[in-house]
Simulated scan of single mutants.
Amino acid sequence: MRLKNIPFKEGKLNVDIENEDMPFVVVYCQGEAKLTYLPNHGETKVITHQGRVKRVKFDEGEEF
């Protein structure tokens, strides 16, 4: 799975952005935070339903 759990305490989320050299997204829903890196090319969609995140969909396409 591409999404990694991010542990946090006391309502504070710490992500070290100094060591990251790729673009990334943090998704927070229902007390859980998850981080995923974005692909070099393609689309990444966050699918929601009734105010909750249901899935994160990656469409990197095909090379011709």
Score class of each variant (00 low, 15 high):
2 R>E: 15
2 R>A: 12
2 R>L: 11
2 R>G: 09
3 L>E: 13
4 K>N: 14
4 K>Q: 13
5 N>D: 15
6 I>T: 07
6 I>P: 09
6 I>E: 07
6 I>G: 04
9 K>A: 14
9 K>E: 15
9 K>H: 10
10 E>N: 15
10 E>K: 11
13 L>A: 07
13 L>M: 09
13 L>Y: 06
14 N>I: 14
14 N>W: 12
17 I>W: 07
17 I>A: 12
17 I>H: 07
18 E>I: 12
18 E>S: 15
19 N>H: 10
20 E>N: 05
20 E>K: 09
20 E>M: 07
21 D>G: 02
21 D>H: 07
21 D>P: 00
22 M>S: 08
22 M>Q: 11
22 M>C: 00
23 P>T: 00
24 F>P: 04
24 F>H: 04
24 F>R: 00
25 V>A: 03
25 V>D: 00
25 V>G: 00
27 V>D: 01
27 V>W: 02
28 Y>H: 01
28 Y>V: 10
29 C>G: 03
29 C>N: 11
30 Q>F: 05
30 Q>C: 06
31 G>F: 15
32 E>A: 11
32 E>Y: 01
33 A>S: 11
33 A>C: 06
33 A>I: 10
33 A>G: 08
34 K>I: 00
34 K>N: 11
35 L>K: 15
35 L>H: 02
37 Y>G: 01
37 Y>H: 11
38 L>K: 01
39 P>D: 11
39 P>A: 09
39 P>R: 02
39 P>S: 06
39 P>I: 07
40 N>E: 15
40 N>L: 09
40 N>F: 02
42 G>A: 08
42 G>K: 14
42 G>F: 13
42 G>W: 13
43 E>A: 03
44 T>Y: 01
45 K>W: 04
45 K>N: 14
46 V>H: 01
46 V>D: 03
48 T>W: 00
50 Q>T: 05
50 Q>L: 11
51 G>H: 06
52 R>Y: 07
52 R>T: 13
54 K>H: 12
54 K>M: 13
55 R>E: 15
56 V>W: 03
56 V>N: 01
56 V>I: 15
57 K>G: 00
58 F>P: 04
58 F>G: 03
58 F>L: 10
63 E>I: 06
64 F>Q: 09
